[in-house]
Design a binder for these strands. Structure first.
Lengths: 126, 126
DNA sequence: CAGCATCCTTGGCGATACTG
DNA sequence: CAGTATCGCCAAGGATGCTG
């Protein structure tokens, strides 16, 4: 059963975890503690805004810990909490599935596009 | 490693699979073939539009098959393909993780809110 | 019943500029 | 360096009405 409570809380949380950026940030943090700027560089398409928001949400949910070093220039490091690390296996399972099925999915999409094109051509015949 | 190719194709597919509605539709179809209207009823918050779009994408990607019965009134049934069924385990792994950690996450959120409130009160002190 | 087309609102997100 | 604040765009998605 995928719905435990009314469904809405679980769905909201799933939605947030499944987020494009969340998974990437978690995956990047898997290896070690990383600074803000390094994260930004290691995750190509992400904007500063989205990185900040994603990190705030992860911190808020207890998946990531934030450490501020009182130095000049300031340094902030992010790290997975134990709970954050526990997300890695299921996340990798899903990512693995996706990676494994990319070719099949693309083939299916191509076939689908062909079908659509063909049928529209048939419809155009007068 | 979560990025296999350039990263963009995989990310697009992951993004679509991870979609709020996609996971719910797949989960609902796990049990058996289901008609359009039944799906709509079994997935509380979904609009007709989103159900249609989600099903089209799943069909297009080869995860769901669509069967039209030539009857009056018309009847259309949706069913997972083998590839669609193969998505179930990793999807359940993630959903299971979420379900398992809902309490911890909510607790963390509450604590985070408290902290924010407290510090803003401290800032307000004159 | 199933589902496409249209309109319209919401808010996600990038870009930019400013602070500690 | 590591953010927060603000603006503006665009796409996601809900509501409604029409067809096969």
């Amino acid at each position: 059963m995928i719905r435990g409570d009314g469904g809405k809380t679980l769905r909201a949380i799933l939605d947030q975890i499944c987020n494009k950026w969340t998974l990437l940030v978690v995956a990047t943090l898997e290896r070690s503690r990383v600074r803000f700027t390094d994260l930004q560089h290691q995750i190509p398409g992400i904007s500063q805004r989205m990185l900040t928001l994603t990190l705030r949400n992860l911190e808020r949910d207890g998946l990531v810990s934030r450490t501020v070093h009182a130095e000049v220039p300031p340094r902030v490091e992010y790290e997975l909490t134990p709970m954050g690390r526990s997300l890695i296996p299921p996340a990798l399972a899903l990512a693995g599935w996706a990676m494994q099925h990319v070719p099949a999915i693309e083939a299916s999409r191509a076939a689908y596009a062909d079908r659509a094109e063909t049928s529209s051509q048939a419809a155009n015949r007068t």
